[in-house]
């Protein structure tokens, strides 16, 4: 089997190999799943180049990399617009294209959104760790030596049968917000009963600003105060002294984890367990919006039932398929 390589000329900002759904079944060993934040765009990029939707590809964050192809490749970019150029010529998003051996793909800063996904036909063939190629930087594992891309690094790629000129139908693409406001679904729980009725309404009716102190571990939010029920203020001492403290418990991915008065949305590289309450949880159908928002953007939260959240996830999953393809 040939192993076409891609050489890293510029790494970008924490550009990492990810796969979907990531490292599953490893919570009990202390590993979160990792994987792409906007897994809708991620899967569309893979489908364009003929890979399985969850195959390993690159997640570029805010500032993209410059990569040199050592062999011909079919590639696709989906997600935020990083004004990509291949051999100096602009490259369209949401479309598979051919790259020649020796050509350089250069991504800049994100003009829209925050994350761009680069899939390569044949998919990235770094060694899997606990069943996944996703990079988990804090755990020093997955991806290329457990780390983001580095200058001079070589990305191994499997053999693929990509076809250029395939496009994602407009109606099947996630729509990146142009006014930097996002309506983010949340489900109540697990610990909504620690927040009083006024506090829950304040959470749902207020604007929340995404803090610059945000990364793939968690997104910090800035907004109004939280108020609590007696459950939070009158509890056994082993819970801890702050109203937001509880006895350590496992964290759902997407939890709105309240640390004192600071809510943090837990993302795919989160700590798997801890001693703060999670009054609400962002379901997986909203993760593409998290992946495409940037510090300073405003979130409005929309309460949905678990059933509704699952229905929205199914609707997105249905679009992560060959049905979303049209020929250019």
């Amino acid at each position: 089997m040939t192993m076409p390589m891609i050489e890293v000329l510029k790494p970008g900002l924490e550009t990492c190999v990810q796969d979907y759904p990531g490292r599953k079944g490893a919570f009990g060993m202390g590993f979160p799943p990792s994987g792409p934040v906007d897994h809708w765009s991620f899967r569309l990029a893979n489908i364009l180049v003929g890979n399985a939707p969850g195959d390993a590809a690159l997640e570029c964050q805010f500032i993209g990399p410059a990569l040199k192809f050592k062999a011909p490749a079919v590639i696709a970019l989906c997600g935020g617009d990083m004004a990509a150029k291949l051999g100096g010529a602009p490259v369209p998003l949401w479309q598979s294209i051919a790259a020649e051996a020796g050509q350089v793909l250069e991504l800049g800063s994100a003009l829209t959104g925050a994350r761009t996904y680069l899939a390569i036909a044949g998919s990235i063939d770094t060694p899997p760790f606990l069943g996944s190629r996703s990079t988990f930087v804090l755990g020093d594992c997955g991806g290329l030596n457990g780390a983001p891309l580095e200058v001079g690094g070589e990305i191994p790629v499997g053999e693929g049968q990509g076809v250029p000129g395939r496009k994602i139908k407009q109606s099947c693409r996630p729509a990146v917000s142009e006014n930097h406001r996002w309506q983010i679904e949340v489900c109540a729980g697990p610990n909504d009963d620690w927040i009083d009725a006024a506090g829950q309404q304040r959470f749902l009716k207020s604007e929340w600003k995404l803090s610059p102190k945000s990364n793939r571990v968690g997104f910090r939010l800035e907004g109004p105060e939280w108020t609590f029920t007696e459950k939070a203020t009158n509890k056994a001492p082993e819970n801890g002294s702050d109203p937001s403290n509880t006895i350590d418990h496992g964290y759902p991915i997407g939890a709105i984890n309240l640390c004192g008065q600071t809510p943090i949305i837990l993302l795919h590289d989160t700590l798997t367990l801890g001693g703060f309450i999670n009054p609400f949880t962002v379901p997986s159908s909203a993760f593409w919006k998290l992946g495409q928002s940037r510090p300073g953007d405003i979130y409005d939260f929309e309460l949905v039932s678990v059933d509704e959240a699952q229905a929205r996830k199914r609707a997105i999953n249905a679009m992560c398929s060959e049905d979303s393809i049209e020929q250019a």
Binding site: C187, I247, P252, A255, N278, P283, S284
Partner: peptide, 17 residues
């Protein structure tokens, strides 16, 4: 039984340690 979004459930057996 406490829901955690669309794909988690927290089963809590008691409220102390």
């Amino acid at each position: 039984y406490l829901p955690g979004g669309d794909h988690f459930i927290l089963v809590q057996f008691g409220d102390d340690a």
